[in-house]
Write a protein that binds this DNA or RNA. Structure first.
Length: 283
DNA sequence: ATGGGGGCCTGCCGGC
DNA sequence: TGCCGGCAGGCCCCCA
């Protein structure tokens, strides 16, 4: 569920609590998430100052004073909870520990950052900051949608002659970073492209048009996350999900939102995942 | 090289 | 009320 906008929202929420702060203690409550934690993870986190929080695709990277970076992926159900902030930046106090609180970072400023992930599709690892891009999980990820390497000519070229559905192509992190099922559905709706169409049958004009649409869809979702961050100070401190209204995702059998269209949103399953689209507007 | 599918994992929800 | 099947899906990995 956490796609690029949700991960970016988490990063922005954590930054004021963590950046420039020392991890006084790392509480690691289990040996693994999706994969085993790196050796001595707690010890390698303890005493390190978080120099910077970054995002690459759906990963958060915390660059540490040691020269290592903590890599975090929220998986499907990963959440970050901020509590116990002594500076009064966030009003919520320590909540009771919850089931699936797998890792808790106790910051020297008194804040706690809790990683909670019921389904444990998430991941954490430590890597050398300078060679982060070569880490196995990052090495083959494609261009950032807001970066200079993601542009019309690139997307036209990379979709050309491909035989897989455009839905699958946009979900492929090697083609573009950060999109998941929700935002691919929303993107294709705006582009008026049927999710089942072969990528190679998307015209150059349509492929070029996908670039600004992808950016708009993600940017609007990040903006919605930003409004959540304002509420966050008065709420429960949970980062990772926020209310956002979608045009097609999750709206099977509801009316298409396109002005003048009287069709209903359809749902099909593509490689095990739901695609929502308007059969009238998207061809 | 490419495309497709399995499997991981738990919470939730509808049906009986 | 309780059980149970189905569903949610990011992403590695394996297979053809």
């Amino acid at each position: 569920m956490p796609e690029l906008p949700e991960v970016e929202t988490v990063r922005r929420g954590l930054a004021p609590v963590m950046e420039g702060q020392v991890i006084a203690r790392a509480e690691v409550n289990r040996p693994n998430l999706r994969w085993p934690f790196p050796p001595d993870m707690a010890a390698r986190l303890t005493g390190q100052r978080v120099e910077r929080l970054r995002r690459r695709s759906k990963y958060i990277l915390a660059d540490l004073s040691s020269g290592e970076s903590l890599l975090v992926h929220l998986g499907m159900s990963g959440r970050m909870l901020v509590s116990g902030d002594p500076l009064g930046q966030f009003v919520h106090d320590h909540p009771a520990p919850e089931k699936h609180d797998h890792v808790v970072l106790h910051m020297a400023n008194g804040a706690r950052v809790t990683f909670n992930d019921p389904r444990r599709f998430g991941a954490m690892d430590l890597l050398d900051t300078l060679t982060a891009d070569t880490h196995k999980l990052l090495a083959s990820i494609g261009p950032e949608p807001f970066g200079n390497d993601f542009h019309e000519a690139y997307l036209v070229a990379v979709l050309k002659d491909r035989n897989l559905p455009i839905k699958s192509a946009l979900l492929d992190q090697r083609i573009v970073a950060g999109l998941g099922n929700i935002y691919v559905c929303e993107t294709l709706y705006r582009a008026r492209i049927h999710p089942g169409r072969k990528a190679g049958h998307v015209s150059a004009q349509e492929a070029a048009g996908l670039v600004p649409i992808i950016r708009d869809v993600l940017q609007e979702a990040i903006a919605a996350g930003g409004s959540t961050l304002r509420d966050f100070k008065q709420s429960d401190g949970e980062l990772g999900y926020f209310q956002h209204s979608f045009d097609v995702y999750g709206r099977e059998a509801e009316p298409c939102k396109t002005l003048g269209c009287d069709h209903q949103v359809s749902r099909i399953v593509q490689s095990g995942r739901s695609s929502f689209y308007c059969p009238q507007c998207q061809r």
